[in-house]
Amino acid sequence: MNRTPRDRDAEGRARSARPRDGLGRPLPYGERGVERQPEGVARTPDETLVEAQRLLDAGKPFHAHEVLEDAWKSGPEAERGLWRGLAQLAVGLTHAARGNATGGAALLVRGAESIASYAAVMPYGIDVDGLTRWAGALADELRRNAAVVPAAERAPQLRAGR
C-alpha cells in the first residue's frame, strides 16, 4: 500500500498543513490557499477583538475563530467561557457560510449560551446582548431556510457602537 506520510508535530498530533480556502475548507495539496492564522499567538483582549473583527468583516470567520481560540486557551480561567463562546459564534458563521445550516445553528446557539452570563459586565466592550440576538436570529433563519449565508455580509459586530 502506498501512503502519503501524515503531517504530525513532535508529539504526534496532526498539524493539518493542507492549504485552506477562506472558510477553512481543505484544498488539494499544491493549490494556493488563504494564509492561516498562526496558532498560539499571545494578544491582549483588545488586539484579539480587533483582529477577529477584521477577519469577520473580510468574510473569514474560520480565521477569526482561530484568533478567538487563542484567547480562550491562554486567557484567565474566569474568561474562558467568553472567549470559547465567541469562537463558537465564529465557527457557527463558518458552518452557515459553508452551507451546513444544522451545524451552524447549533454552534450559534451554543456560543450565545456561553457568552450570555457576561452580558451585565460587557467585558472589553463586547456587545454580549447584541451578539446573542444576532446568533439567535441567524440560528432561527438557518433552521427555516438552509441557504448558504454570505459570511462578510452577515458578520456580527463584536463590540457595541463599532
Rank of each mutant, 00 (worst) to 15 (best):
V41W: 02
L23P: 05
V67R: 10
L68Q: 12
T44Q: 08
L68S: 13
R25V: 06
P26D: 08
G24D: 07
V67F: 11
Q53Y: 13
E51G: 12
A52K: 14
R18V: 00
L23H: 08
L56R: 11
L55A: 11
D21N: 06
W72C: 11
R18P: 00
D57H: 05
R32C: 07
Q53L: 12
R36Q: 00
A58P: 02
L55W: 08
V41R: 07
D21M: 03
V50Q: 15
L49A: 15
T48G: 15
L23A: 09
L49I: 13
F62I: 04
Q53K: 13
Y29E: 08
Y29D: 07
T48W: 12
A58K: 06
E31W: 06
L56Y: 10
L68N: 15
R20D: 00
A71E: 14
P38D: 03
E39S: 01
V67H: 12
G24E: 05
G59C: 09
A42P: 05
A52M: 15
P61E: 14
G30L: 08
D21Q: 05
A64I: 10
P38V: 01
E39P: 00
V50Y: 15
L27C: 03
P38S: 04
D57A: 11
G33I: 03
P45Y: 13
R20Q: 07
E39A: 01
K60T: 08
A64G: 10
D21W: 05
T48N: 13
L27Q: 01
P45A: 13
A58L: 08
H65G: 09
R25N: 07
P28R: 03
L56Q: 10
L23R: 07
R36W: 00
R36P: 00
P61C: 13
K60D: 07
H65R: 11
T44F: 07
R20E: 06
V50S: 15
D21F: 04
L49M: 15
V34H: 06
Q37F: 01
P45E: 11
D46R: 14
V41C: 05
L55C: 13
R25M: 06
E31G: 02
L56H: 11
E66C: 03
L68D: 14
A58R: 08
G30C: 06
L68H: 14
A71L: 12
L23I: 10
R43Y: 09
Q37D: 04
V67N: 12
D46M: 08
E51V: 12
P19W: 02
V41K: 04
L23C: 09
L55E: 12
G40I: 00
Y29Q: 04
H65D: 11
Y29K: 02
P61D: 12
G59Q: 08
P28E: 05
A64K: 10
G59L: 05
P38F: 01
K60G: 09
G30Y: 07
L23N: 07
G40Y: 02
L23Y: 11
P38K: 02
V41Q: 09
R36M: 00
R54L: 15
V34K: 04
G59A: 09
E66R: 01
G33A: 04
L23V: 06
D21S: 05
P26S: 03
Y29N: 03
V41E: 10
G22C: 03
V50M: 15
P28Q: 03
